[in-house]
């Protein structure tokens, strides 16, 4: 497909999704019971934007993590980042219950960064020869952090909070309660500017160094970005697993691995996919809602299973 037609198609799909998202919901816009304009401004539009921003952010974060550990089968959700963010959130909720969203998110981001760095240290001890091993280690590492978080939450009666952070849902999004997510819109262009460096990161430490990259600094910056995005998503809407895994893999299969060219597409697909899941969640059991995170987990895990087993295997006869 030519770039023009490609972007035209992408734009059309996105526009259609946005329209659908604004129009669909438990309350009708045109019945006259409610002020349609107000409904859109306070609920529908923020909700739509939140889904778009979260989806794009998670997909981009997935790309960075995959490059950082040189493994296509991982994403922030598979290296313990959201669980670490939740631990941070629990800590701040316990110590300073009245802290502002911004403070909470900063603490969560810091915790997420520490958690992700710990995983990077762990990953250094994982043999590289089998690409399947790293996601497994990550899953269990995340599981251990998750169990710790659950235990803390249990003993302090905060299980309900943990529940909202763990399952990504957009039904609670209102104007004034999602704006942290705009941080994605700020970080995405930065990532685009650094696309080549991130690509170099994917070559591994030695190769990247020999090509003149400040490896550690770039890695740290990249992971900071991942931590901030993940923390913002966890705080505002809750974790959505597999977005960062599935989206970059699809794009790379369809369009190859040129990051600079593909990053916008990745962001687009992440945003569209999450928004589509949210719309689907509103329709399936109308007027009740199914969390977008739940729907994406089913699709995402299904796709991952396919990637894992249909992927071109290393030749072993």
């Amino acid at each position: 497909m030519k770039p023009v037609t490609l972007w035209l198609t992408a734009g059309l799909i996105l526009a259609a999704l946005i329209c659908a998202s604004v129009l669909i919901g438990a309350a009708s816009l045109f019945s006259g019971d409610v002020d349609g304009g107000l409904l859109i401004a306070v609920s529908r539009l923020p909700r739509t934007l939140a889904a778009l921003l979260a989806g794009a952010g998670l997909a981009l974060a997935g790309v960075v993590v995959q490059m950082a550990v040189q493994n296509r089968l991982v994403e922030p959700g598979l290296v313990g980042t959201p669980e670490a963010a939740m631990l941070g959130l629990l800590a701040v909720t316990l110590i300073a219950p009245g802290a502002s969203m911004m403070v909470k998110m900063s603490v969560a981001a810091a915790a997420a960064l520490v958690g992700t760095l710990c995983f990077m240290v762990l990953a250094r001890h994982v043999p590289r020869r089998d690409p399947v091993l790293l996601p497994l280690v990550g899953l269990i590492y995340g599981g251990i952090l998750g169990a710790a978080a659950l235990w803390v939450a249990w003993t302090t009666d905060l299980v309900q909070y943990l529940g909202t952070w763990m399952s990504g849902e957009f039904s609670g999004v209102l104007a004034g309660r999602y704006e942290l997510l705009w941080i994605v819109a700020v970080l995405a262009p930065l990532l685009y500017l650094a696309a080549d460096r991130i690509t170099l990161l994917g070559l591994g430490e030695d190769a990247a160094r020999s090509l003149g990259l400040n490896y550690r600094q770039t890695l740290l910056a990249g992971l900071l970005l991942v931590a901030i995005i993940t923390a913002a998503v966890v705080v505002t809407v809750g974790a959505i697993p597999f977005v960062g895994l599935v989206v970059p893999n699809i794009i790379s299969r369809l369009r190859g691995d040129n990051l600079r060219r593909n990053l916008p597409l990745t962001a687009w697909l992440g945003a569209s996919a999450v928004l589509a899941c949210d719309i689907l969640g509103r329709l399936i059991r109308w007027p009740y809602e199914i969390p977008a995170g739940t729907i994406f987990a089913v699709f995402g895990a299904g796709l991952f299973l396919w990637l894992l087993n249909a992927a071109p295997r290393r030749a072993h006869a």
Binding site: L73, D130, V132, L133, P135, L136, L139, S167, P241, R285, Y288, E289, I290, P291, T294, I295, A297, V298, A301, G302, F304, L305, L308, N309
Partner: peptide
Amino acid sequence: LRMVLTGVILGIFLRGLTSFAQR
């Protein structure tokens, strides 16, 4: 290892499907 990972993701898939069905 591929089999283990397949199993683990299968578990996640089923748990997702369950909470989907529960909704």
